[in-house]
């Protein structure tokens, strides 16, 4: 069988050629190509991983923002409420203060009036006393001859007494 009889020359040359080609391609072709392919693949994998990471971070950031917004809204509501309360309090305080002032003034005025009234009454009493004494003096100094005259006279005196 000619076909199945390997030629020595072709055996040797093929072996030689294979070895040369193997070492040539190994160092000059396969190594750089496989290294580049690997580098590219890991690069793509890294890029996808970092993109996912960024996406997750973005989502976290968004959640955080939303939480912050909600908190801010709550705080605003609280602040408005507080402000309103303060304002109301201030108004009521002012009202209370005004009322108490008014009460005080009124009280003072009343006490002053009372004082003056008392003073006036004392004065009147004193004057009435003196007048009575004067009248009594005059009556006593005049002779109590005529009853009628006496009464007129008292009337006259009494009229002269003007109670301010």
């Amino acid at each position: 069988m000619e076909l199945l009889n390997p030629g020595v020359g072709l055996l040797v040359w093929t072996l030689l050629a294979f070895l040369v080609v193997f070492f040539l391609l190994k160092s000059f072709a396969w190594k750089p190509i496989l290294a580049s392919l690997k580098e590219r693949e890991t690069g793509i994998a890294d890029a996808i991983a970092s993109a996912d990471k960024v996406k997750a971070e973005m989502a976290a950031l968004k959640n955080e923002n939303e939480a912050m917004m909600a908190r801010a809204r709550e705080e605003r509501a609280v602040m408005i409420k507080e402000a309103k309360e303060t304002a109301d309090k201030m108004v009521s305080d002012a009202k209370d203060k005004a009322k108490s002032e008014y009460d005080r003034i009124v009280a003072e005025a009343q006490s002053a009036i009372m004082q003056q009234k008392n003073a006036a009454l004392t004065d009147v009493k004193n004057q009435v006393g003196t007048l009575v004494i004067e009248v009594a003096e005059k009556v006593l100094s005049r002779e109590l001859s005529n009853k009628g005259d006496q009464e007129n006279y008292i009337k006259q005196l009494a009229e002269a007494v003007k109670l301010n």
Partner: peptide, 28 residues
Amino acid sequence: YDMSLTRNVIQMFIALILLCLLMIGVAN
């Protein structure tokens, strides 16, 4: 021992030179 560069050998050499050039070109 016939170590001749027969047509199989020559053609194999041509094919392999071509292969090396192509692959090293791609690698570069």
